[in-house]
Design a binder for these strands. Structure first.
Lengths: 210, 210
DNA sequence: CTCCAAACTGACTCATGAGTCAGTGTTGCC
DNA sequence: GGCAACACTGACTCATGAGTCAGTTTGGAG
């Protein structure tokens, strides 16, 4: 099932759109920006997508699908739970520039007026929850994590990560932000109920680049 | 120091603007909407505010100032720390409809392109951190909270609350949301290291309306 | 009461950007 | 190699909404 010409072009446009959204924000991106960045005509965008709103929704569905593929590769790996958790957390959490997260603040806001985008976001959130839940259960089963209520732990972890991301985007790279980031990482190890050795290990793997 | 005519009008406009932002979103609100809701002319908005961006920034500064006043009233009260924490959390956290939070998702996103708004948001975040820090210290001092690192606890609490708010806005009032909300509230009691009795008390006071 | 400055009006300009469409180029199938 | 069908172009329309401005009203100081 080789992707046909149209399919390839659509994906090219989606990738370019995401790039532009990241750089200019969703509202700040004109259809023409996407076209220009690909060296194609304005009209082509609307040849392949019904409207700008649809392009936005499709673009997010596209990144979400790719992100989730990467996530499941980590979760279903046969490495020890602690390492998988570290990898999942650094995939999820904001990097130093928080570039990847800017787009999500935009998406949250845009989802209030774009139902299909909202559905994509909920799908993403559900998947991450499920993934963290699987990881937490594995860790508890193998005795590395020590906690009583996985759901509570997962909610806390996701909340801490989202919250840190928001701060990271709004505050940028400041001293205050660096200390928040550290505190957040340590709070997660706390939630998981790790031994001191394992805390250090997790922090180590979280601070590594993807 | 009676507020003069101009000052009053400015505040009227700011209030109306916030109302409109909540209902239509920041990007979806036209200067004309604000004017219309007050029954004044379009031009008056620009007589009192230099630009729409400035109106946005000033409107947020306005709600922030009011919110923070309410916050400090709670923090500096002479009630026991547990009760003050409960009150602060229910002031901060999203209510059932999460209406109050929609505007913040918009604000985060808009702050990426509005520096003065960004500064307001950082000021707000700093103030909440300071407030929670004070509450946590008081609670630890009086022996009600049992935790080793206040900064870590505050980062976790704010993260959990922000994260829950994001979910609440995106998911709306669903069953999944209700369970997330419960898990989040309990995760906070966990972070504070409360006794079973105090956990129940805090949950009680958090679930009460403002 | 008079008069001036400040508050206010609303019709206007102007830039912007989504979406259209008539026409051109390209592919690959018969 | 001819001819659909599809991919693509780019100049165009059109709605929208921020911001302007010349003129009008108002309120309060003298």
């Amino acid at each position: 099932m080789a992707k046909d010409r149209t399919q390839l072009r659509r994906e090219e446009i989606l990738e370019a759109a995401v790039e532009q959204f990241t750089a200019r924000g969703i509202a700040g991106t004109r259809a023409a920006d996407v076209a220009k960045s690909l060296g194609v005509s304005n009209g082509l965008i609307f040849y392949h997508f019904e409207s700008k709103n649809q392009l936005i929704a499709d673009a997010f569905a596209f990144v979400v699908d790719h992100g989730l593929q990467a996530l499941w590769k980590i979760v279903e790996d046969d490495r020890p739970p602690l390492e998988r958790m570290g990898r999942a957390l650094s995939l999820y959490g904001p990097d130093e520039e928080a570039t990847g997260w800017r787009i999500w603040l935009d998406a949250w806001s845009a989802s209030l007026r774009n139902d299909s985008l909202r559905e994509t976001i909920v799908r993403l959130n559900d998947a991450w929850e499920e993934a963290f839940m699987a990881l937490v259960r594995d860790g508890v089963e193998s005795g590395v994590f020590s906690l009583t209520d996985p759901e509570l732990a997962v909610t806390a972890i996701i909340g801490i990560m989202d919250g840190t991301a928001v701060q990271a985007v709004v505050r940028g790279q400041t001293d205050r932000m660096r200390s928040i980031r550290r505190a957040a990482a340590r709070a997660v190890t706390e939630v998981l109920g790790l031994t001191e050795t394992d805390k250090a290990l997790l922090l180590e793997s979280m601070s590594q680049a993807k």
